[in-house]
Nucleic acid binder design. Structure first.
Lengths: 233, 233
DNA sequence: ACGGATTTATGAAGCTTTTATGACACCGAA
DNA sequence: TTCGGTGTCATAAAAGCTTCATAAATCCGT
């Protein structure tokens, strides 16, 4: 998915130019022409980066900055401040509220785009949470959550670990012994058949109505995470 | 009440001059001659502004800055850095730790006083600085207050910190150990089960009648701040 | 194609682990 | 001392795990 950049600027011509250049770079763009709108828009479509004019109607850039920092979703969004003046105090204040970069008008469009790219690149890893995906299934290690097709799925601890194990090695078939060893741990002894039960529960939780079964049973061998039930590749 | 300005400076003659000029302007003045003292004094008499020498015995100005930013009471106090050098790197480093302004020795007394006045003036309205929100919950770090849906909620110190910790990293699941470490501190030893009790108290305080539970229990993993218990996205 | 032998899927029951709760004792500050 | 605030326990209440018995499905040799 394309990263979204929000432009907060009241000067229409500048907005047009910014939008043109950013979209050419492959970013999605949202805009707001005053502070209040900025907060609203950010709420509806959380941006991955913000270009924020210092002087705005209805709410100063500095205040917008604070508002953005308050919400968890936009807390870590990189912000580039635009200002007409180049006074030191402004710069300081901007940095204080949490702007990540700062440009003085007039500025060169290529440079701005470059900075946006830099900020996005830098911000990525901080947001990069450990999560695995397989098809329409997502397993989030931080939130300890699994979803399929956008819908959250509840799993018990063991099913969660089992799915994680399979998602880390999709396509590979594991015997019950291997699964017991990898998921339950090497020191635990339980009946190998117990695996069957957990596989069943995993299937039941994952396979809602129409969706296909992602777990493949391989007779006499074990199970694997596999999109196509048995069909040829 | 007169605004208090703390002077952190080891050169006695300069301190005298500063004190004289500031008091003439109507400010109360506290002083510290080294970094450690600065932290102590700030603790006893939270200043409204700080004049901080870059070079200090026992603790660098930069470190003092950090210490001040760490405590909620002094987190947002405007700080003016004084330095003998005027190198850009120092400047940048100073700003990075959160200094609000920057003056190079030697400086004119009237200018310093003017800057102090400016900082105090603009620090006033920005009282509403540190606050976190999650859904209809607001945690105000300045007022040390929590409200849900506009209604104030009373929390004990530990519950407050626990909530703050969770709100700073919404969605992420934390084990009891992690919470003990992050909220209680790395050196404190209490039963991991104690976390349960505080979670319960937090829930009881937060969840009035109709409102939904924002704390998710993840069996065998821990707790997280999370709007939807298990529902769809 | 048929029947027995294997192997897997399922549903339910009992048991274990983990969490929620209420009560209580302790401590430091007002 | 009286009050919040905290940490611990004992106990209740969930939630999840394992096993077992049985039904289905799949294989294989004839």
């Amino acid at each position: 998915m394309k990263p979204t950049v929000m432009i907060v600027e009241d000067e229409a011509s500048l907005v047009t130019m910014l939008r043109y250049n950013l979209e050419k770079e492959g970013y999605a763009v949202t805009e707001a022409s005053d502070g209040e709108e900025a907060v609203t828009v950010a709420d509806e479509t959380p941006p991955d980066a913000v270009i924020l004019d210092w002087m705005l109607p209805r709410m100063s850039g500095i205040e917008v900055c604070r508002q953005l920092r308050r919400k968890p979703e936009t807390r870590h969004v990189p912000i580039i401040m635009l200002t007409a003046r180049s006074e030191e105090t402004d710069k300081v204040r901007g940095l204080n509220v949490g702007a990540d970069d700062y440009m003085t008008k007039p500025f060169s469009m290529p440079e701005l785009v470059a900075r946006v790219r830099a900020l996005l690149r830098r911000a990525k890893p901080s947001q990069a949470k450990g999560q695995l995906t397989f098809g329409d299934i997502t397993l989030d290690l931080d939130a300890h959550r699994v979803s399929r097709g956008g819908r959250y799925v509840h799993l018990g601890p063991t099913e969660f670990r089992l799915l994680q194990y399979l998602m880390e090695r999709p396509g590979t078939v594991f015997s019950r012994e291997e699964l017991l060893n990898g998921v339950w741990g090497p020191d635990i002894y339980v009946e190998p058949r117990t695996v069957d039960v957990h596989i069943r529960r995993l299937r039941k939780a994952l396979n809602t109505d129409d969706s296909i079964d992602v777990i493949r049973t391989v007779r006499a061998a074990g199970y694997s995470l596999d999109a196509s039930g048995d069909a040829a590749a």
